[in-house]
Each structure stands twice: as C-alpha cells, then as structure tokens.
Design a protein around this nucleic acid. Sequence first.
DNA 1: TCAAAAGTGTTATCATTACACCCATGG
DNA 2: CCATGGGTGTAATGATAACACTTTTGA
Lengths: 238, 238
Amino acid sequence: MPYTYKYPRPSVTVDCIIFGYSVGSQLKVLLIERALDPHRGQWALPGGFVELEEDLEAAALREVEEETGVKDVFVEQLYTFGQPGRDPRGRVISVAYFALVNLAKHPTKASSDARNVHWFDVDRLPSLAFDHRQILDVAIDRLIAKVRYQPIGFELLPEHFTLSQLQELYETVLGVSELNKRNFRTKILKMGVLREVGRQEGVAHRPAILYAFDKERYATLVKARQEGLLRRGVDFEI
Amino acid sequence: MPYTYKYPRPSVTVDCIIFGYSVGSQLKVLLIERALDPHRGQWALPGGFVELEEDLEAAALREVEEETGVKDVFVEQLYTFGQPGRDPRGRVISVAYFALVNLAKHPTKASSDARNVHWFDVDRLPSLAFDHRQILDVAIDRLIAKVRYQPIGFELLPEHFTLSQLQELYETVLGVSELNKRNFRTKILKMGVLREVGRQEGVAHRPAILYAFDKERYATLVKARQEGLLRRGVDFEI
DNA sequence: TCAAAAGTGTTATCATTACACCCATGG
DNA sequence: CCATGGGTGTAATGATAACACTTTTGA
C-alpha cells in the first residue's frame, strides 16, 4: 500500500536527548546502538519516524518511554535539524527533543532489551551516527543555559532534596566546583520557591533539611514578574 | 510525475515571522493576504513548502527576501509546529523562523505585488489563518525574552544610533515606558559593547553621540564568560 | 569525643535605583 | 534666550562575594 503525492516530501523523525542524573554521579545521556544500516553498530540518539496522526511531542514522549520505561517526563523541543545530506537515506528532517530524568526516582530498564542501550557520561561520549554529535552539543548548551533561568534542575532531583544535593547538581551541570555554600543557600532560599518538607534521618552527621520545589509559588512569581509587580524575575543564575 | 513512498509522509513548510522596526514607530510584523484556499482572503504569515534539497534556514531566508526584498537578514529558528489538524490540507509540519528587519535601512517593497502584503503593529493584529496567531504569540514572547540576554535589538536599529534611540527600542519591544535614562545609559555603556562613531548633525538640540554595536568586542566578552574569566556575562536585562 | 556534613554571622564590594541637575544646539 | 533633547553627579539601597565560624548527628 504505497503513498503517492504530487510533490516530493521529506521524512520527519524525532530524536531524543535523554539526560539522566542521580545524586553523587555525573550527568548522563542515553544512547542506543544501531541495529540496522545506515551506521549499523554505531551509537545514536533514540528516535524514530513520526506517525501520520501523531503530535511531535507525543512522538518524543513515546520514544522516551520505549527506551527508558519512564512516563510523565519533562520534555522540551530543542531544535529542528534539516540539512540536506544529514541522513544517507534521503531528505530526513529531525525534530529534536530533550528530556530530563532522575535516575534514582526511575530505575530504568536500559540494556534489558536485546538491543544495546547505555547511559554515557556526557563528557565521555563515543562517536555518534548521523549528525547526532552536533545535536547533542546543542542540547548540552541549551541545558546549561536553561538551568540558569528556569527551574528545570529540579526535574533531575528526587521529590525531596537537600540544599547540598541541589548545589551538587548545579556544580555537575554547569561544570564548576567552586560554588560557595553560604552564598548558594542565601540566593536559593531568598527566591522563595522551595518548601520545607522534613529532615534527613539516619545520617552520620547533622541531618539536613529536606526541601521540595514549590511549583505554585514559582508560577505566582513568574506571573508577578510579567505584570511588572516585581523588578527582578526568579533567576537561577548562580 | 508523482512521488511514491512506502509509508505516508507529512508535508513540511517554513513560516516566517518578520519583525520590522524603525525609530519613532511601533514594532511591526509582515503579513500576507492569502490568495488561495484554505483560508483565502485571511491574513497569514509568509511561508511555503520546503524544497527537497533546500536547507531549512535557506528556505526561510528565501521567503523573507521574496516578501520584503531584503537579503542578509537576521533569522533564527523559532519552533516547529506539527499538531495534526493544524492545516486542513492534511498533515503539515511547519518550521517557524523569526526575522528582524530595520525598516529605515531597508525600504521594503511590501504591497508592491498584486498580492496584498502589509506591516501590522504587533498590538493591532487582524485575525490570522491556520494556527498563525499562536505561532506569532510564541515569536513575540521569544523576542521579548531574547532581547534581554542577547544583542539582537541592534538588528532592528540603523548601523549608527543614539542611546536614546536604543532606549526607545527597548521600551517599544518590552512594552514599558518608564526606563530611567540615567540608569539605562550607565548599564549599557558599562557592558562595553558599543563603539563611538560620531555625533548627530543638524538637530535643534545638543547633538547626541552616535554609537555602533561592536560585534568583535561582544564575541570576546561572551568567550571570556564561557571560559570563566568573567563572573557575569553580558546581559541586556534592563 | 571525633569526623562529617549542615547551617549561620558578618563585612567589603559592587550593582541598581531614584532624583536632580547641567549642557549644547537651532530657531 | 528659549525649547528641546543630550548627558552627568550622587546618595541610598540591595545583591554578591569572601571568609570564618557554630551546630547536630552516628559511630
């Protein structure tokens, strides 16, 4: 059952950059080993063709769930890559999405499949198929830029977290190691988007206060900013 | 000469949000009146189908030049809109680009065509075809956000401009009217990305210093920031 | 009582805000 | 010499950076 059109049409795919993080380790990205040509045996971003009646973001969420088993993930459209020649099979336009997954919250089934699936540290990547290295670089730049002015870092943390864990996340993502504890805490708490939810238990040192990100409060502050009631917005510039 | 594929494929278009500005007037956007169904007679964003061997950005630049006669324009990919049902002709995925044009520098040929082409004030828009109103809203939000942290405002100004003209641009784009002259000047000049290039002549008041945006200097500062040599980046938050 | 990590006080410096004022030009 | 917009001085306030210190827990 072939499909016939008056003018030539490109293929459209979604590719997903799935970032994974858990407290105490590096920022990671999920890659799959290609089972088919072209680039058989090379590592690549998970992705696939968009179905004819499927929304783009739905296609991205479907890919993420297929590869990690995780639903209800933060995804955001990154960029659309459409240079002729980027895929040897012909004109393929790829809408890239990036996703943020907390690995502790969601023990992923990566590598359970027959296919080879693996979480790589973002600074120890293999060579990638197609133009996926370029796509990944754009994603990393976007993540670093975005974490500075939107509360997306919380997507990578457990529901409840300590300020030290939050600081460690920022140090990991931004690639710095000299954040001053005192000033980090002052700045974050003064924003007023965290809610105390308890204390650590069973640790061999003073137990830390646990916080949760308060979405409602954040939304209120963003709105106040838009309406000019606040001089400065909520920015996570550290 | 029909084209046949094994699986169904969507059509891919580019749509362009072309913002126009000249000193002393409002921010404008270029719209065209559709000559064909669907939505014949309605106003819409300029755009069209991507050719099979044409890069996406090249397609956007082609559209901008066809509609305004202006080459070498700042264009940037905005977002890709692909919701099924957004176009009654079938599945059409649109990669939207936004462009910035200084109307004084480029006297555009808008309305010279048989087709109806018009610059509309962004706050006095007609109803638009397809989901173009939604696309335009995304573009306006992006412009407002982007002008705060990247030097794209200069794309809307003549080569040489006064600080008052720059301030007026920011007031227009951001939709505020109370920027403090003293503080605006201090902030902008302290960034160190402007170069003095002369003085106004023939005005009935003290002639203003003319400035140009110094791209090299800006690139240097951005690089220094990335390498951690500067605590703060160059941000145009006013 | 010690190690380990949590959490706080305080000061110097820098950026932002607000308001008032002076300057140079053409008509 | 006046209207018009260009341009500057300065002080109060708030944010940021830097450093040293106290607190609480389990072992």
